[in-house]
Design a protein around this nucleic acid. Structure first.
Length: 443
RNA sequence: UCCUCGGUAGCUCAAUCGGCAGAGCAUCCGGCUGUUAACCGGACGGUUGUUGGUUCGAGUCCAACCCGGGGAGCCA
């Protein structure tokens, strides 16, 4: 019997095993908020309805003590909880283990304190809700890809030097040879599509960036689909279907969780195809027009900074652009010089490339980044040289263009940013059970 | 790396001009039949991040360092 399904058992006598989330009392009444992992339910212990010993037990129970309660399920609009509206009229209370004084109280705490108690903080309702939404998002990701002909082929986490500069890579010792934790599985994905057509990898990735913002973790999860016989326009169609499915699945399955998180779901209901598409050129114009008017960036104290054509967007630019739309927005055809070497330049305008980022609304930033990949071996070799990268480590990658090359595209979606956006959380550290931030590795 | 804000009781915070270290919550004891972060009464609780300096006197002023929050750059 789970609290999640309490509504289906009104009038029945049920047993719940869980933990005491909170307790209040009033003389001959004790109200226990009981958690069982699926929700929170109020258990009402009235002195006249239980054995004297059980009433004394209920009175003595401390926050987070483990317990087993039996009682009759009653619908009562006064009953708090998740989903709420139902409570237990208790007949039996059994203490399993009395908890020592619990450090986390149902009130405001500082970030540092909560992070030090992450192993306990996870029990709090908002953290519980976010982890459950994350699990639904992960399942939706896999379901959609599996149902649309993508084969899950995971890529290595230990990788040799990519030669793109190792400052943002975590180095490890590979039997005497330096190796690095993967930042992406994309190059391997490109090998895999030639064997399987459509693939995705899904796993943790690592960035040793000195980033200390609400959007950054040192270790984060990314799903990277890659598709053979797919150009940039087709890629955007796939992305909008994929992202919309994820969001709609959360709306369908996570109503209690989103309520706990106090998420305004009307913004999420709008997330259906098609998403608006603008070019980098148009985005620069928008930004510079706003800068000329001295417009403020939502959430920032400063006006929109102006931009030179050819510069990559900063966070304030992305936030401003995304705020002009009430859905995620595609920005495509970035300058070739600011993007990775493997992105296909536009044939009749090589200063821009066939790349696309998807910016989430409400300041959650870039949630996907993708592109059409260079499919001609000579163009790829030229691009590698232009970026001053050594050819030797990329020989296998160039090979992919030598043996049956095709137009192909792919993208990566950051799980934590997606969870933060869907949940309306203001920091990605709350979207993963044990976040690795610039300053926190414990617990 | 840079900018910015902060560090006082287990937690969240206060302390006026540099002049006795204070509350609420939590915990413990007592009371209450509808509580929602309950309420009422009582008790317990301090190396003011560290080191040095100025001063009759420093939580408060100065210097250096440590730790944390927010942001920039970079990125998903």
């Amino acid at each position: 019997m789970t609290i999640r399904s309490l509504a289906d058992h009104v009038g029945e006598t049920v047993t719940i095993q869980g933990w005491c989330y909170a307790k209040t009392g009033k003389g001959k009444l004790v109200f226990l908020q009981v958690r069982d992992g699926t929700g929170i339910c109020q258990a009402v212990v009235f002195r006249g309805n239980v054995e004297e010993a059980d009433f004394e037990t209920a009175k003595s129970i401390t926050q987070e003590s483990s317990l087993i309660v039996s009682g009759t399920v009653k619908a009562d609009p006064r009953a708090p909880g998740v989903p709420g509206g139902y409570e237990l009229d208790v007949q039996r209370v059994q203490l399993v283990s009395l908890a020592e004084p619990y450090p986390i109280q149902p009130k405001e705490h500082g970030v540092e304190f909560l992070m030090q108690h992450r192993h306990l903080w996870l029990r709090s309702s908002r953290q519980w809700a976010a982890m459950r939404v994350r699990a639904v998002i992960v399942r939706a990701i896999r379901n959609w890809l599996d149902d649309h002909g993508f084969l899950n082929v995971d890529t290595p986490i230990i990788t040799p030097a990519a030669a793109e500069g190792t400052t943002t890579l975590f180095q490890i010792d590979y039997h005497g040879e330096p190796a690095y934790l993967a930042q992406t599985g994309q190059l391997y994905n490109e090998a895999n599509i030639f064997a399987f057509g459509k693939v995705y990898c899904f796993g943790p990735t690592f960035r040793a960036e000195k980033s200390k913002t609400r959007r950054h973790l040192q270790e984060f999860w990314m799903v990277e689909p890659e598709i053979a016989f797919c150009n940039l326009e087709q890629l955007m169609e796939i992305e909008e279907q994929f992202v919309s499915f994820i969001v709609q699945r959360c709306l369908a399955e996570c109503e209690p969780e989103l309520k706990v998180l106090e998420r305004d779901t009307t913004a999420l209901q709008r997330v259906v195809p098609p998403f608006p598409r603008i070019t980098y050129d148009q985005a620069v114009e928008m930004v510079n027009a706003a800068a000329a008017r001295g417009e403020l960036v939502p959430g920032y104290p400063d006006p929109v900074p102006p931009l030179e054509w050819g510069d990559d967007f900063g966070s304030p630019h992305e936030t401003y652009i995304a705020a002009q739309f009430d859905k995620p927005v595609f920005v495509h055809h970035y300058p070739t010089q600011v993007k990775a070497f493997y992105m296909e330049p536009e044939p009749d305008r090589p200063e821009v490339c066939r790349s696309v980022d998807l910016l989430a609304p409400e300041g959650y930033g870039e949630i996907t980044g993708g592109s059409e990949r260079i499919s001609d071996p000579d163009k790829l070799i030229a691009a590698i040289r232009r970026h001053n990268l050594p050819l030797a480590p990329y020989e296998w990658y160039i090979d992919l263009r030598r043996y049956g090359s095709v137009v192909h595209s792919g993208f990566g979606l950051g799980v934590e940013r997606t969870v933060a956006w869907v949940c309306g959380l203001d920091h990605v550290r709350e979207t993963i059970a044990f976040p690795r931030t610039l300053t926190t590795m414990r617990p």
